[in-house]
């Protein structure tokens, strides 16, 4: 069985979790056993993805982060990892339910559109390069979960502003709580991104120079998230404005990555 087979299997489980989410939202079900099924589907998907990544890593004899397809799959995996590790500590109802559709969508985009051809500019195999890429991907996972939380915040905020909230609003957490979690995830992601960037600078000096497109993308992303974090903490950005900015920053991160990867080919 190939790594792609496991990735498609993971996709099927994530689709199952997303379908369950839609059904729960439609039928306004919040029972704990439904939440457990949701978590089980996501965990199985996560493990399938892990097997897929390990098989690919064995074939490549390195961390599978050599082309846009692999990076996209890794970002999805990191997002689920953050959800599974960090999610329970916040006890946010419906976080898994909102994570599943985002994971499904990004993974499907990766499976269908992202280039899986060996990259023309694959860098030398070095622990510094892998450290930089690995930590960077983890940062993307934290930003992706911040995107999910921002989406929940946006939905809940709109419900409250509508003056006639639908029953869905009872299933979602308080806007203030979502705001706090969003900022914490952005901080965590930013710290990881900064550490990854330091690794990138060191590998650039010690191993091999990075393509300029990648360097530009990395620094732009760093500045975008620095500005966003400053706005949300020092500038007191909250509510709809903060949610939209957080979501836009992650969409920028993904699209800019795919764009620069295409340019660097």
């Amino acid at each position: 069985m190939t790594d792609r087979y496991f990735l498609w299997m993971a996709f099927v489980f994530y689709v199952g979790a997303s379908a369950l989410t839609l059904w729960r939202l439609r039928s306004e079900r919040s029972q704990s056993w439904l939440h457990h099924i949701n978590v089980i589907l996501i965990v199985v998907g996560f493990l399938m993805q892990l097997v897929g990544l390990i098989l690919r890593g064995q074939n490549l004899h390195r961390c599978p982060l050599t082309n846009p397809f692999e990076v996209t799959v890794f970002i999805v995996w990191a997002l689920v990892l953050f959800y599974l590790v960090i999610g329970p500590s916040y006890r946010v109802s419906f976080l898994g339910a909102f994570t599943a559709p985002v994971v499904t969508l990004i993974l499907l985009t990766g499976l269908l559109t992202a280039s899986d051809a060996p990259h023309a500019l694959v860098l030398k195999h070095s622990p510094w390069v892998e450290f930089h890429a690995g930590i960077g991907i983890l940062a993307c996972g934290a930003f992706a979960l911040a995107f999910v939380v921002a989406a929940m915040d946006l939905v809940q905020n709109r419900q409250l502003k509508s003056h006639h909230p639908s029953p869905t609003f009872r299933l979602l957490p308080a806007v203030e709580q979502l705001g706090v979690i969003g900022v914490r995830l952005l901080m965590l992601g930013f710290i990881l991104l900064t550490v990854g960037m330091i690794g990138g600078v060191i590998s650039d000096k010690l191993v091999e120079a990075w393509p300029w497109q990648k360097v530009a993308w990395a620094w732009t992303t760093w500045w975008v998230y620095a500005a966003l974090l400053a706005a949300r903490t020092i500038g007191n950005w909250r509510g709809q404005k903060a949610s939209v900015a957080t979501m836009a920053a992650f969409i920028f991160l993904l699209t800019a990555y795919w764009g620069t990867s295409w340019l660097a080919r």
């Binding site: 809940q156 409250l160 909230p165 609003f169 979602l172 806007v175 203030e176």
Partner: peptide
Amino acid sequence: VELAEKIFR
């Protein structure tokens, strides 16, 4: 009260 609980943590 229900609305307040969905606004404040």
